[in-house]
């Protein structure tokens, strides 16, 4: 049973004018395969920083704490090693890669993650099935990665990758943002398919509770000022939907609209 353990994680980011800025201030979190966690929190609370730090984006500097996957030191791994170890990040803003087709990209990624090229017949079938389930046109496979994709297409493409790469732990960064109801439902179905395998731990990062209507979390963590401020079950999400984040925010902090 795969386990991602985050202990007392401190992360800073280099800012152009103010030098390094501390974003995460001691995050503790354990995600096991088959569990679904939601991380909710106001803008600027460090949710995305957590996602990118787990994936190893060079912009973020870990200044303290540990991240392990089944006991292996994730922080010592390069970005691609983390992915091959079983981590996956569905990005909020996936990047365009001109000239590289979706089909080539998926096959290359699958080959990298599993250490050997997938058998062509099974692979073609798997890709087609996964694309059908996400209501993606077959022509999509011949387009260049994320180039000219709509917001919904980008997110479906991220979920497609998650379904095909079968990670041990997947972090979904604001996957619901910018999606209309239909697209949100399709994407959520994809997330639920992964969830139902029981083989992937899911960490849904979201500002709103929209996606949680379709994907029921086992655990909800409220993120405030770079750490987990409160934890609970799905009822905590309902509470946040009703009452917002006000009670978690420092009353002396300036109120922004």
């Amino acid at each position: 049973m795969a386990t991602l353990e985050i202990r007392d994680l401190h992360v800073s980011v280099e800012t152009p004018d103010a030098g390094p800025k501390q974003i995460l201030r001691g995050v503790d979190l354990t995600v096991r395969a088959g569990e679904t966690h939601a991380i909710m929190g106001p803008n600027g609370s460090g949710k995305s920083t957590l996602a990118y730090s787990i994936a190893g984006h060079p912009r973020y500097t870990v200044t303290g704490g540990t991240v392990t996957l089944d006991g292996e030191d994730v922080l010592a791994m390069s970005v691609d090693e983390r992915a091959r170890a079983g981590l996956f990040l569905a990005m909020q803003y996936p990047v365009e890669v001109p000239g590289v087709t979706v089909s080539n990209f998926l096959r290359t990624a699958k080959t990298a993650v599993s250490g050997e090229a997938p058998s062509l017949r099974h692979w073609t079938k798997d890709v087609k099935a996964a694309m059908d389930a996400l209501r993606m046109d077959p022509a999509f496979a011949e387009r260049n990665v994320n180039e000219g994709f709509s917001g919904g297409e980008k997110k479906r493409h991220e979920i497609l990758q998650m379904e095909l790469l079968k990670p041990k732990v997947a972090v979904l960064d604001e996957t619901d943002s910018g999606l209309d109801v239909d697209a949100l439902r399709i994407v959520s179905e994809g997330v639920n398919r992964v969830r139902e395998t029981g083989e992937t731990g899911l960490l849904l990062i979201t500002h709103y509770t929209r996606i949680l209507r379709y994907v029921k979390p086992d655990f909800v963590h409220v993120f405030v000022a770079g750490r987990v401020a409160e934890e609970g079950g799905p009822e905590l999400a309902d509470d946040l939907e009703e009452n917002g984040y006000d009670r978690f925010l420092d009353s002396s902090a300036p109120v922004t609209a």
């Binding site: 994936a55 190893g56 984006h57 060079p58 390069s78 970005v79 691609d80 983390r82 992915a83 091959r84 996956f88 990040l89 990005m91 996936p94 990047v95 890669v97 990209f105 290359t108 990624a109 990298a112 993650v113 990758q161 790469l165």
Partner: peptide, 10 residues
């Protein structure tokens, strides 16, 4: 970063 995050070495 995007390509590497899918397991593809630099």
């Amino acid at each position: 970063f995007y390509l590497q995050s899918r397991g593809i070495p630099e």
